[in-house]
Deep mutational scan, measured.
Amino acid sequence: QTVVIGDTTYHLNNPEAAQQIAKELAKKYGLKVVISGNTIKLK
């Protein structure tokens, strides 16, 4: 699972954790979560 935040890319072996982290950050910073395949992007 790949999480992309701005110009930073994180690789996590746990998809659920990756999605949870993405949701928390999106909520905290008012970002939009875009999931395509096994890549999660925060914009």
Rank of each mutant, 00 (worst) to 15 (best):
T39R: 06
A18D: 01
N13H: 10
V3E: 02
K27Y: 08
Y10F: 11
A17W: 12
T2H: 08
G37N: 06
A18N: 01
E24V: 13
L42G: 00
K28V: 05
E16R: 11
K41S: 12
A22D: 00
N38Y: 06
T8S: 07
I35K: 04
E16H: 09
E24N: 11
Q19W: 15
E16L: 10
Q20I: 09
N38Q: 05
G37L: 05
A17Q: 12
A18I: 12
I21Y: 13
K28T: 04
I35Y: 09
I35M: 07
K43I: 15
L12T: 05
Q20S: 08
A17S: 08
L12S: 02
L12Y: 14
K43G: 06
P15I: 12
D7L: 13
T2C: 15
G37S: 04
K23P: 00
A17T: 12
Q19R: 12
K32F: 10
T8D: 04
V3M: 07
T9G: 02
E16P: 02
I35W: 08
P15T: 10
K41M: 14
Q1A: 14
V3W: 09
L25C: 09
T8M: 12
Q19N: 07
K32E: 10
G30P: 02
K41F: 15
L25D: 00
T8C: 15
G6N: 06
I5H: 04
G30K: 09
Q19A: 09
H11R: 06
L42D: 00
E16F: 11
L12C: 15
E24C: 15
A22M: 10
V34M: 07
D7R: 14
I35P: 01
I5Q: 03
N14A: 06
E16Y: 10
Q1W: 15
K43Y: 15
T2W: 14
V3N: 02
Q19M: 15
A17G: 04
K28N: 02
I5E: 03
A17F: 10
A26Y: 11
G6E: 04
A26G: 03
H11V: 11
D7S: 13
N14P: 08
I21F: 15
Y29A: 02
E16K: 10
T39S: 06
H11Y: 14
L42F: 09
Y10H: 01
G30Y: 06
K28I: 08
V33F: 08
G30L: 06
T8L: 12
Y29S: 01
V4C: 15
V34E: 11
K41P: 00
G30I: 03
N13V: 08
K43P: 03
K32S: 12
K28A: 05
K43E: 14
H11L: 08
L31S: 02
G6P: 04
G30F: 06
N13C: 15
K28M: 08
A22V: 07
Q1R: 12
I35S: 03
Q19S: 08
G30N: 07
Y29K: 01
Q20W: 14
I21K: 08
K23Q: 11
K23H: 11
